[in-house]
Write a protein that binds this DNA or RNA. Structure first.
Lengths: 276, 276
DNA sequence: CCGGGGCCGTATCGTATGTTACGTATTTTT
DNA sequence: AAAAATACGTAACATACGATACGGCCCCGG
């Protein structure tokens, strides 16, 4: 087998490496190939190992010395930067066989999910989230609560009046009193749909609260009460459903919302970016 | 005027350069920036001038010494290679225009992430998670805690002895007492890396606990202490980083773990599936 | 619990590499 | 056309860098 790139060499031999050298490999891969062009000392420091470990690492890859290793990286770089067309196919290493089916399914799910979300739907939801007068409540089920939490963490930063409902059912049920027509309730509910969530959604709906539902392709019963329904594909070759498509949707919404508020010149956004 | 790249610097000053230095400049531009990353001797040879001329050249550009000049080139390179999001258009169906760039970046991130994870690494981590004698602790940072929570929710179902560390720092710091060489600590930490997590990881590492780190491509400092490092791509065209690649990785791990325990005939798995 | 092998870091060494001084060549100026 | 100034290369120098020898540590097998 002809090995053309150092990256290939690494993925080929990383399995037979001791821990320290593997860390070196990881570090190089993570910021390929820049760190490999620096000195041994810098490389070792960034990888959190000693210099000799770096040298043992390059030796294991088959190079006579560090200079030869760097030359290889530079040659690669030259070839890569010369022909922009070469970056396309990426015939590097094959994906890990065991996780490939799962991964392909997830990617397809994400694509399919977005294919069923219209531009209009997106902007509507974003507009709803952008309304700072509306108090936003988030709630999720057993496996989807982390999604609600993730979204709440971001929303809390980019706008006021965001509440993630947590804990026992009785706790958030009491918050219904504060919810009215102005407000927004984001619910995450995929199979198996939780009764408690359905009851909660119904009550909120009766109070006139706008409901945005994140669910799977079979649609939670809550869709009945929802103003907007985001249906993510969840089927994967696994014992469990995949929430990845919903996760990506959440991130996309947050990104779009940030952009919208930015465009509207919201001071908060600018202040936040200054803080970062 | 703020000059961002070395190439700009050159075009700005090349007119006021003597012949030899100009040859150096043109040589560098011709194969930018590879030749600049090599030694002075090689650079000089390729340009057909002497070493001191090269040094005078970099001095004229405003650099204190050759090392500083190389660092500048490397930083540029890092920034440039960081964003390969420009390629692989393939706009299959009419995706919502506004979210398309974000979505493409996320898909590319996921693919790229898995390309850097070896089969061996996957099975090693899964094996670690499959060891039921080992108590598993999970902890995450501000935006990654939901990922830890999501993983914990599944792990709790498929095996005993899983604890998600939540709440104030003092709370989970006290749990260190229970952690030993047997145990496993799953840490989620992406930029900006949290000091509290680093301290916690160090303490756990001192106690001999096996650490599995989920981080971004720039690697949290915790990588120093970690037995396994999962580096997900997080860069997207947004004000926020994307955790999607890590989320997918988590789901893949859970799927693989379930399959492994299933194959080993774990009674618990069968019972759980009966319950579903 | 004890012995052995492999892994990793510390400290030292030799050298390749960047740097500088100086003299020659070349161009410019009057 | 001569002198001065600038440019450039040669060669010596110093240091930072890669390479290596050595010893302690940890993990595995007996």
């Amino acid at each position: 087998m002809v090995v053309s790139s150092v990256a290939e060499l690494i993925t080929e031999k990383i399995d037979s490496m001791p821990a320290g050298e593997r860390r070196a490999a990881q570090t190089l891969i993570a910021s390929y190939p820049v760190v490999g062009l620096k000195t041994v000392a810098e490389f070792s420091q960034q990888a959190g190992v000693s210099s000799p470990t770096i040298l043992r690492f390059v030796a294991r890859l088959g190079f006579q010395n560090y200079a030869e290793f760097q030359s290889a990286l530079q040659d690669e770089l030259a070839a890569q930067l010369q022909s922009p067309a070469s970056r396309t196919t990426a015939p590097l290493s094959p994906l890990p066989a065991s996780s490939a089916p799962m991964l392909e399914a997830v990617l397809e799910n994400i694509r399919e999910t977005f294919r069923h979300i219209s531009e209009r739907q997106m902007t509507d939801v974003v507009a709803q989230l952008a309304n700072q007068r509306s108090h936003i409540y988030l709630i999720g089920g057993r496996f989807t609560d982390p999604l609600a939490r993730y979204m709440a963490a971001h929303l809390n930063l980019i706008r006021p009046n965001v509440t993630h409902l947590v804990g026992q059912e009785s706790l958030w049920r009491d918050r219904l009193i504060d919810m009215n027509k102005r407000d927004t309730l984001l619910i995450f509910d995929i199979r198996r749909y939780q009764d408690s969530l359905i009851r909660f959604a119904e009550k909120a709906h009766q109070r006139g609260t706008t409901i945005v539902l994140f669910t799977d392709q079979w649609l939670s019963p809550i869709a009945r009460f929802a103003r907007h329904v985001i249906a993510g594909r969840t089927a994967v070759p696994s014992a469990w459903d995949s929430s990845s498509s919903l996760f990506v949707t959440v991130e996309t919404l947050i990104g779009a919302l940030t952009r919208k508020l930015e465009a509207e010149g919201a001071r908060r956004i600018r202040e936040i970016e200054d803080l970062r």
